[in-house]
């Protein structure tokens, strides 16, 4: 006796009617597109701007007894007063190996060195032997305490700051509320491709000083991970005196 074979699992179980399936698909797509328009409005404007942590080199110096009167704030020593590195006596290899890509900290060091080297040595005071800082700090340091930061943006910050001049004819009172924003696009080679004022300060001499600072600034090339963003989206520079 031949019994009836059980139905194959692969056998069609019956089809969903076409209309509900198409309707469901349309509804799903409509939902996705609706989400595309609705979700951004759920957030209040664009995402908050990313503010890099600007960390400065810790100055070489001695911690100071807080009971004593303070020392005068002193700038880093001029490039001329820094010790010149002595070349190694070890024989150089005949074929120079390919230079590795500079690290972010090296880029920052270079930017700082360039900036310091350009400074007019006559405007700098002699090094203060009792400078406040850390025993493990750097002679080029400008901060008294350390903080982890974003090396490239610190280099950008410091390079612009080197040329950032506020005309002394602007009164202290006016300096309290002056502010300007400049959007700058940076090329892969570190060149400032273009810039535009997003907000002027209202003081023509202050705005002119910012214009000059940006024109004079030379930046190190951005690291690969930032190059495209800085070229296409730029970096917003908020200036206050």
């Amino acid at each position: 006796m031949i019994g009836s074979a059980p139905p194959s699992l692969l056998a069609p179980q019956g089809r969903m009617p076409a209309l509900p399936a198409v309707s469901l698909a349309i509804a799903l797509h409509a939902g996705v597109f609706a989400a595309a328009f609705v979700l951004p409005r759920l957030f209040d404007g664009p995402p908050p701007p990313r503010k890099p942590i600007i960390a400065h080199l810790v100055a070489l110096g001695r911690p100071r007894d807080p009971r004593l009167l303070p020392r005068k704030e002193s700038p880093p020593p001029s490039a001329a007063s820094r010790p010149v590195p002595v070349p190694s006596t070890a024989a150089a290899p005949s074929a120079a190996p390919r230079k590795p890509e500079p690290s972010r900290s090296e880029l920052m060091e270079r930017a700082l060195a360039r900036a310091t080297g350009k400074a007019d040595p006559e405007t700098r005071e002699p090094a203060d032997p009792e400078r406040v800082g850390s025993a493990s700090g750097s002679v080029e340091g400008t901060a008294t305490t350390a903080e982890e930061g974003d090396a490239y943006f610190t280099a950008v910050h410091d390079a612009i700051l080197e040329h950032y001049v506020v005309p002394s004819v602007i009164s202290e009172r006016e300096r309290l509320y002056l502010a300007a924003s400049v959007l700058a696009w940076i090329g892969p080679d570190g060149r400032i491709l273009s810039h535009e004022f997003q907000k002027k300060s209202g003081n023509a001499f202050f705005d002119q000083a910012l214009e000059l600072a940006i024109q004079k600034t030379r930046l190190p090339p951005p690291p690969a991970g930032l190059a495209r963003s800085l070229r296409d989206n730029g970096v917003l520079l908020n200036f206050r005196p």
């Binding site: 996705v32 597109f33 989400a35 595309a36 979700l39 951004p40 664009p46 995402p47 701007p49 990313r50 503010k51 890099p52 600007i54 943006f153 950008v156 910050h157 612009i160 700051l161 950032y164 001049v165 506020v166 005309p167 002394s168 004819v169 959007l183 001499f205 000083a209 600072a213 963003s229 989206n233 730029g234 970096v235 917003l236 520079l237 908020n238 200036f239 206050r240 005196p241």
Partner: peptide, 25 residues
């Protein structure tokens, strides 16, 4: 894909600069 397109905003860093050198005009 659509959500990624929607939520991708301009990731623009902002640097605050203050303490410019006060120099004579």
């Amino acid at each position: 894909f659509v959500l990624a397109l929607t939520l991708a905003a301009v990731d623009r860093p902002v640097i605050d600069l203050s303490g410019g050198r006060i120099q004579p005009l």
